Amino acid sequence: MKKISRRKMIQFGVLSGLASALGVNAGIAKASVLIPTPDETEGPFYPVKDQQDKDADLTQIKGYTAAAQGQHIVVSGQVQDVAGHPLAQATLDIWQADAHGRYHHPRDPNPANPDENFQGWAIIRSDESGLFRFKTVMPGAYPASGSWIRPPHIHFKVSKPGYRVLTTQMYFPAEKLNRSDLLWNAKSERERTAMTAQLVAKQGNLPVYEYNIVLDLLRR
């Protein structure tokens, strides 16, 4: 067998090390790519009547003394791009049903009495680290048809210049009605995971759910 010179061995070692490093780095980079949060239907109950109070506390309407009914919760998370970079000043348009499963919408057919102390709608922004946080109530389930009961969920419309507008729905973990929901069942297992919040802590009596959102670049 022909001997390889010391210089060649050194060159080979350097090149092999470089290739190995590039391979590892490429693997890490590939693994760090996030899937964009899946789209979901906006639904028929996006607010049509403007309101003054659209802040991050949906449990208390400005000027009202009583708080919203139901289990109060906190939802927090981070808006990111697919590379995992935080996205500052993203706009989050949030709306949901109250604890009785009723929306503040004139065409909601749910016979449940609406909670007049529930704000129902918020428009907030992520901070400089892409973080957001709001207080709300656990939304109630409601009938979408005679045989279809929608599980508790929160609607999001998230936007930032340079990124595709995302309209989606956040689901709750360990919710039995998820398994029979037509929209939920239309998603893959990976998509369901991306659309489901995680119960991460308790703040006093308030359950805290984490829900991270990934935006995709606007394609031109």
Rank of each mutant, 00 (worst) to 15 (best):
N25Q: 11
A186Y: 10
K202G: 08
R125W: 05
P151K: 03
L22S: 08
E116P: 03
I149R: 06
Q119A: 08
G140V: 07
L199P: 01
P44V: 03
Q89L: 09
P143N: 12
D108N: 07
F134T: 00
A67K: 09
S20V: 13
P152V: 09
E210T: 13
W95A: 05
Q203N: 14
A144Y: 00
D115I: 02
V158F: 05
I94Y: 00
N110E: 06
P106H: 07
W184S: 00
P47F: 04
Q198K: 13
E42T: 09
T59D: 01
V48C: 13
N117S: 11
Y142T: 07
K157A: 11
D57K: 07
D108I: 04
Q69G: 12
F45M: 06
S180P: 08
A26I: 14
A97F: 00
E40W: 07
P47Q: 02
R102K: 15
M9W: 15
P106N: 03
L18D: 06
I61S: 05
G84E: 05
Q51H: 13
L215W: 12
N205G: 12
P143V: 14
A88F: 01
L18E: 06
P44D: 13
E42I: 13
M170W: 05
R190N: 14
A122Q: 04
L215T: 11
W121Q: 01
E128K: 11
K62G: 05
F156L: 15
D93K: 01
I73F: 00
T168I: 02
R125H: 14
R219D: 11
S76G: 12
D50W: 13
V79Q: 02
T136S: 11
V79M: 02
E189Y: 01
G70E: 02
P38H: 11
D39S: 15
K2V: 15
A141F: 03
W95M: 09
L199I: 06
E210M: 11
Q11I: 15
V74E: 02
L215R: 00
L131N: 15
Q52N: 12
T196D: 00
A174I: 05
K54Q: 10
L218N: 10
D127G: 07
P44Y: 06
P109V: 09
Q96L: 13
Q203Y: 10
S20Y: 15
Q96I: 08
A112S: 12
D108K: 03
P143R: 11
Q71E: 14
K135H: 12
L182G: 06
R219M: 11
R125G: 07
I73W: 01
I213S: 03
L218A: 14
P38M: 04
Q119T: 10
R164E: 14
R102V: 15
V165Y: 05
G23C: 08
E128G: 08
I4T: 12
S129F: 11
H104Q: 11
L215P: 07
F134S: 05
P114A: 09
W95S: 08
S159D: 02
E128L: 08
G140W: 02
K202S: 12
S32G: 00
A141T: 13
L18Q: 08
N212C: 04
P139H: 07
W121C: 09
V158T: 11
P44S: 13
V208F: 03
R190W: 04
A31K: 14
A68N: 06
A19R: 09
R6W: 01
P47W: 07
V48I: 15
